[in-house]
């Protein structure tokens, strides 16, 4: 039941695993009559149609070509860009900032979430503070981060960590809160100790939520990494985009925007794969099949 939720349940506003609220479509619609072959062809047509429309609009010079280069120009530029060491070092910087930020956020959220989630007193005492801190837009702290850490990766990390931390933290709380009291009581009546209950009751219940939190956090962290680079100016794809904007070098700008989209898709795809992998062997997946 829980696993096919489409909307955050009541309470802390967590997202049930499998929730499409954050990203892509649910795997497999209820109507089984879809032919994947046909829709792949149509989807390909859609992509080609988009490129063609872009080409024609640019060719007709609806907008000044200095501002809107043709699709083919942009694609050619993308290819040259891929041959430049500058591009790869920027991409490397972005990936490192993203990875480090995500790792810090996930670890911190797991520790804080587990401690606060397992102790009812802490859970109750922190609720109002969490509800206040969570909706603060992460970009609001950019000036503060710049002030404290300068125009550096450290400043960027403050922003990259902030929002994904809450995403995972809330999921941990939600997952622990979802532990079936009957299952827990049963385990207790069989004389399982605290640690054993944690291992056999709490962890299996919370894991799907945590993995979903991780997936959403990975996408958010990428968005914030590039945002930070663009606004703060620490090295990475985001800064390169701003450089091309002020040049102005429109083909370069559009090529890099396409790169960020591709990067976003890649992160989506990989985390989705990880999610499926991890939850595949997991006993709690049975509930999804049953729902």
């Amino acid at each position: 039941m829980q696993l096919t939720d489409t909307v955050a349940g009541p309470g802390p506003g967590g997202v049930a695993p499998g929730d499409p609220a954050g990203t892509g479509p649910r795997a497999g619609g209820r109507r089984g009559a879809r032919r994947p072959g046909g829709s792949a062809v149509l989807g390909g047509l859609g992509v080609v149609g988009f490129a063609l429309t872009w080409e024609v609009v640019a060719w007709a010079q609806v907008v000044d070509p200095a501002y809107l280069p043709r699709f083919t120009t942009t694609a050619a530029r993308l290819v040259t860009e891929l041959g430049e060491p500058r591009f790869w070092s920027a991409l490397g910087d972005t990936v490192v900032t993203w990875g480090v930020g995500l790792a810090i956020a996930v670890v911190a959220a797991l520790v804080a979430g587990a401690v606060i989630g397992l102790v009812p007193f802490l859970r109750r005492a922190t609720r109002s503070t969490v509800e206040f801190l969570r909706p603060i837009p992460s970009v609001a702290i950019i000036p503060l981060a710049v002030l404290v850490a300068g125009l550096s990766r450290e400043a960027a990390l403050v922003i990259v960590v902030y929002a994904p931390f809450w995403q995972v933290f809330i999921q941990v709380l939600y997952g622990i809160g979802d532990v079936d009291t009957v299952a827990d009581d049963t385990a207790r009546s069989f004389g399982l100790g605290r640690l054993q209950r944690l291992r056999h009751v709490v962890l299996p219940t919370a894991l799907p939520y945590v993995i979903t939190g991780f997936r959403l956090a990975a996408s958010i962290a990428l968005v914030l990494t590039i945002t930070a680079e663009l606004v703060i100016g620490n090295p990475g794809i985001g800064r390169q985009i701003d450089v091309y904007r002020s040049a102005p070098d429109a083909p370069g700008l559009y090529a890099l925007v396409l790169v960020t989209g591709g990067l976003g898709l890649l992160v989506n795809l990989v985390t989705r794969l990880v999610e499926r992998r991890v939850l595949h062997w997991h006993p709690s997946v049975r509930r999804e099949a049953a729902a």
């Binding site: 992509v47 907008v63 990428l222 590039i226 985009i241 904007r245 700008l253 890099l256 989209g261």
Partner: peptide, 26 residues
Amino acid sequence: RALLEPMLEFFRAIPPVVLVPVLMLL
């Protein structure tokens, strides 16, 4: 839906903030 879905997924994957420089230009 089948026609547009891949393109829409791609647009969604673009970090919204990089649209700022694009729209500034346009």
